[in-house]
Design a protein around this nucleic acid. Structure first.
Length: 483
DNA sequence: TGAAATGTTGGGGCG
DNA sequence: ACGCCCCAACATTTC
């Protein structure tokens, strides 16, 4: 335990960096004197992130992660002080109450947050307070968006050259260790109880999320360790298989900053070197995460509007009925429906299945990608503005380095290729549990006696397809070839 | 980070 | 034995 120390404390403002290790601004807040007292705070101000206030699943995660963080801070002789917005007011109150002379935080990249943070930094500096030095390494990314440019100084708009340039950069530095102690102030300012933020649902629909995940820095580290030990070696071959545990599942931990990308980068590099594995395929996925953040930074309007102007007036359908069927996982295509049920229950969706359900929404149903992005935003525990925007614009074909309009996933083929036994689909659609693998991805093609034997009455136990694939594909091609 | 249509090849059944 | 046809398997082109 640390002793309370005199002098003006520094406020450390936790945001999406809910960890103690490799936290550059936190480490900086504890310098230059090791006994500089620090007041860790969290401010709940969802309306300041509009129209992208944290969704319901994100709030559940946040509640758990803040609980873990508060516990970790306690173990270091410190606490987590919780306040509510407006942030500017909360910071003004806290600095006045504590006599703090400095407020430190790590950078975020969402357009509304960037604007707010700039305003806050300006206000604080005008009042003579110190903010974190500008030359800190990024906490949420491997490379700052300013660091990567094409030869003529423009932002990259294609992934492959972007990633090539990234790999030519000096490697991300060694992660920082967690501080051994965090000296507390002489007196603690008042804090709201975490419960009062109302992050957890009033009706307990979050059991699936809590069962599937361990939010917090310790949970993040455990999952990273598991990934290194049991998943990384086969990552290249297994990453597309939703019926296997073949991906890192680190995305929510990364989103909330419970582990930093450079911790992941370093751990994967050294594990791969030790066992002569190829880290390339996985690091490339970290690369997509980087790319998404850089693109959002350079083109902030893409969170709501298509990147390619040609899509500004695309005649998307307006069909609340099919949108509802999609959200509920009642499209009649098992690969699509299983994915949407997995999402609803666990707050997560395998990446391959994200592409399938997103393609189905935008191409088969011709619904605007923003509708799908909005649903993901509310239901995903890893909802991240940059990743979500990139993923949906990619699928819709409206992004820059996006899938061409004619790339339309066939949910039946995707199912037979990536879930050949149908175990993934059956896990989330118990009604289909007794269908033979041959028919599980297209139940409507099964002979009546097979359906009867499996106890499936189509239209009753499981829906018939809401659109015919061949027809929908032709319609999408016709509509999109005009753009 | 596609799928479907179309083209090509080669084995085998069969008259 | 031979040529014809069918069709699976693979390759290429097109959307």
């Amino acid at each position: 335990m640390s002793k309370p120390s005199g002098g003006a404390p520094t406020i450390f403002w936790f945001r999406q960096d809910l960890r103690l290790s490799d936290n550059p601004a936190l480490t900086a807040a504890l310098r230059p004197t090791a006994d500089r007292s620090v007041i860790p705070i969290f401010i709940w101000a969802p309306s300041e992130e509009k129209p992208f206030s944290p969704g319901a699943a994100s709030r559940v995660w946040l509640h758990e992660s803040l609980t873990a963080l508060a516990g970790a801070l306690q173990a270091k002789g410190s606490r987590l002080v919780i306040r509510t917005g407006p942030t500017e007011q909360a910071l003004a109150d806290l600095t006045a109450e504590t006599g703090a002379r400095a407020v430190f935080w790590n950078r975020r990249y969402e357009p509304a947050v960037v604007e707010r943070d700039a305003r806050i930094a300006e206000t604080l500096q005008r009042r003579g307070l110190v903010t974190a030095p500008a030359d800190l390494p990024p906490a949420a990314l491997l490379f700052e968006p300013e660091a990567l440019r094409t030869k003529d100084g423009r932002p990259f708009q294609v992934f492959t050259p972007f990633w090539r340039a990234a790999l030519e950069q000096p490697a991300p530095a060694e992660p920082l260790r967690a501080p051994t102690t965090i000296p507390p102030p002489l007196a603690w300012p008042a804090s709201h109880p975490l419960e009062s933020l109302g992050l957890r649902p009033s009706i307990p629909w979050d059991g699936g999320i809590r069962e599937a995940w361990t939010p917090g820095e310790v949970g993040a580290r455990a999952r990273l360790r598991y990934f290194l030990d049991h998943v990384l070696a086969e990552y290249g071959g297994e990453r597309d298989r939703p019926d296997r545990d073949g991906t890192s599942r680190l995305s929510p931990h990364l989103h909330f900053g419970e582990v930093s990308p450079r911790q992941v980068w370093r751990a994967v590099q050294s594990e791969a070197a030790r066992r002569s594995l190829d880290p390339g395929p996985f690091l490339r996925e970290l690369g997509w995460r980087e790319f998404a953040h850089h693109v959002l930074h350079h083109f902030p309007h893409t969170a709501t509007r298509p990147m390619r102007p040609a899509f500004a007036h695309f005649p998307w359908a307006k069909d609340p009925g099919s949108l509802r069927a999609w959200r509920r996982g009642q499209t009649g295509y098992p690969m699509v429906d299983a994915g949407l049920r997995e999402l609803w229950v666990t707050g997560f969706l395998h990446n391959r299945v994200r592409m399938v359900v997103a393609s189905f929404l935008t191409k088969h149903l011709l619904l605007p990608w923003q509708k799908g992005a909005h649903w993901f935003w509310d239901t995903l525990v890893d909802a991240d503005l940059a990743d979500n925007t990139m993923g949906w614009q990619w699928t819709a074909g409206s992004g820059v380095d996006a899938a061409p309009y004619f790339r339309i996933f066939n949910p039946v083929i995707q199912g037979t290729k990536f879930d050949p036994e149908g175990t993934y689909v059956k896990r989330w659609l118990p009604a289909l549990a007794r269908l033979p693998p041959r028919y599980v991805h297209a139940p409507w093609t099964a002979p009546p006696e097979i359906l009867t034997a499996a106890g499936v009455r189509l239209g009753h136990d499981y829906p018939l397809p809401i659109v015919d694939h061949t027809w929908a594909r032709a319609r999408a091609l016709a509509a999109m070839s005009k753009e």
